[in-house]
Design a protein around this nucleic acid. Sequence first.
DNA 1: TCAAAAGTGTTCTTGTTACACCCATGC
DNA 2: GCATGGGTGTAACAAGAACACTTTTGA
Lengths: 245, 245
Amino acid sequence: MLFTSLKDVVNNGPNFLPQLSIDCVIFGYHANQLKVLLCQLLHSDQYALPGGFIGLQEDIGDAAKRILAERTGLTQIYLEQFGTFGQPQRTDRQTHQRTLEACGIPYGPDLWLLKRFVSIGYYALVDYQKVVPTPDVFSGSCAWHDSHALPPLLFDHAAMIEKALDMLRLMLDHKLVGFNLLPDTFTMGELQGVYETILNQKLQRTNFQRKMLSLGILERVEKKYGGGSHKAPYLYRFDTKTTPS
Amino acid sequence: MLFTSLKDVVNNGPNFLPQLSIDCVIFGYHANQLKVLLCQLLHSDQYALPGGFIGLQEDIGDAAKRILAERTGLTQIYLEQFGTFGQPQRTDRQTHQRTLEACGIPYGPDLWLLKRFVSIGYYALVDYQKVVPTPDVFSGSCAWHDSHALPPLLFDHAAMIEKALDMLRLMLDHKLVGFNLLPDTFTMGELQGVYETILNQKLQRTNFQRKMLSLGILERVEKKYGGGSHKAPYLYRFDTKTTPS
DNA sequence: TCAAAAGTGTTCTTGTTACACCCATGC
DNA sequence: GCATGGGTGTAACAAGAACACTTTTGA
């Protein structure tokens, strides 16, 4: 189920679960910023979360993975459902109508896409460097945005990102989830940066290091030479990556 | 939107969001047990979570509240969404078919009710004593069951309860949620019982009391006389009841 | 040799745990 | 009085915060 054009999707309504969609908040980490992958809608200044629809016989988790793979090129991603959004007015007909008209795609008043949609939200943690952002059929471009400087967003997507962030912060206390935002090996400073950015607070360097190491999940690999005029930091590896549950 | 017969509901498919349902895990506390409200399906030995469908223009949270009100007689209930379940095979045609046939209700092969359903799960915390369990159109009875001794359950409802319990335990650490399972006034021992039952572990009486009081949310009301041959415990009240967010 | 960043050790504070003790009540 | 359950005080311990100190690197 891969669609190459908007028209293709518009005509495939009967192959999806009706009035149900998936939206993915894809988090990456770069330059001390928590980034979110957003798609700029065609002929619009609005941005949207990467989303999609669910095949008639497709598992909703699988659908989320498929959408993620299509937008990032990655499989094996840390993925977690964080909430389902179902206010009757969360979507509006006008936005899609404008897009369809601007693209010259004919449609009737009962087009499936113009109906009310309930959306299931997933968030993903990915290695920024590995992602190849790829726009979907609704959008002209797909790119990273700083989570603290988001552009105008479609529908309730801003609220979705907020909720996803809340859940991510909650998870950070309970599970060792931050690693998924980093490459396979990383320094303790980089890991601390991830935590500080997500939690939006400075952490004590020395205590952070001890706490992380005390969990016994980090493997010290080798020293990383190069960089600046200072002691070379160790590189660490986290074994059990991409392990939701 | 209140339906009095199964036939009534079966013929009202077009008034609901298609292939989407809501299931509620309603928790109560009684006799040192965490209870779950379950409905016994008509002409079956299976039990189901109280559930329902979503009106075409109804908010999903409002739908959950409506379902809760219909089954318990209560409004103003602590309610929280805990997950959406969407495996393609989670529901099966046979169960509903059997019920419809046993009830002598005619149906076609394309009946909306026999399609695949994605279900949004909510859990609720209620005061056991205030609930008047009321069966829905699919069931002959509606009653409390000990969460540690559940009868055979419909579809993936057992997994839903498990997930709801996980989320409830998680919440118990972060928010003061246990009060919603008790009457307006309660003793510290009763509150401790709630925590011990949900977390499934004994807690230290003296420290539990200090911890709860240190949060500054409990108002001491009066002493509770009667009962046994021992010191009368204070009664406490929790002001900001039923405050999700 | 010096600045900058990484890693380790040590103290101080805080919060948790465990348990001893006292209080009220009905038999 | 005394057994029973409720409430408070306190010492012992563990976890966290703050900070001093050493190590390593490139300029």
